[in-house]
């Protein structure tokens, strides 16, 4: 079983990202489970959504205590909490960070076995235009596919129509592809 924590801020679509990822995994024949951290939905506040992916139905219904993968949709989150605090020793982290990850604090680099960055904010601005809240969720899912390689990018595409109106599907598909292509390993 793989456990994934997706960190974002209210309004960025972390819960939707987790649901798309789970739906994509379901499309590939896995038995996924996803749920948000219990709490109010507050714009801008830290949000975390959990995904479990397994080959058979998942019976446990508890929080994720040691994720295999952590996705961080907004670097500001590090000012509020440590999204990587409970990651497994051999875990993977995918962080939205500009400039090919140059200047990423060493404390973060040392904490994670396998670290990737993608400039999802820039991509979001290119694709969705200048929005007050950068919509980085689908871009990071593309990056997830490139980094973790258990879910194919095409499966993400197949899941998109469940979450977006028809006219937005292609736009989000582009975001996923951009995320996939622009992943940087550190």
């Amino acid at each position: 079983m793989k456990e994934i924590n997706i960190y974002g801020r209210g309004g960025q679509g972390a819960v939707t990202a987790a649901q798309i990822l789970a739906t994509a995994a379901f499309g590939e024949g896995y038995w996924p489970q996803t749920f948000p951290k219990f709490g109010g939905e507050r714009r801008g506040a830290p949000v975390v959504a959990y995904v479990r992916i397994d080959n058979e139905p998942i019976v446990i219904r508890t929080k994720v205590y040691a994720p295999d993968v952590v996705v961080v949709m907004d670097f500001n989150l590090f000012k509020m909490l440590n999204p990587l605090g409970d990651i497994k020793p051999d875990g993977t982290a995918i962080i939205n960070y500009p400039d090919h990850g140059e200047g990423l604090p060493s404390s973060i680099i040392e904490e994670v076995a396998s670290l990737f960055t993608v400039d999802a904010t820039k991509i979001a601005h290119q694709i969705y235009g200048k929005t007050t809240i950068p919509i980085t969720n689908v871009t990071l899912l593309g990056a997830y596919c490139a980094a973790v390689k258990d879910i194919s990018l095409e499966s993400i595409y197949e899941a998109l129509p469940d979450f977006f109106p028809e006219e937005k599907v292609e736009l989000n598909w582009k975001a996923a592809q951009m995320g996939y292509k622009n992943l940087r390993g550190l």
Binding site: W31, P32, F38
Partner: peptide
């Protein structure tokens, strides 16, 4: 609530 209401599963 939450544990079933908000968990998404097949």
């Amino acid at each position: 609530g939450m544990i079933i209401s908000h968990y998404m599963e097949p």
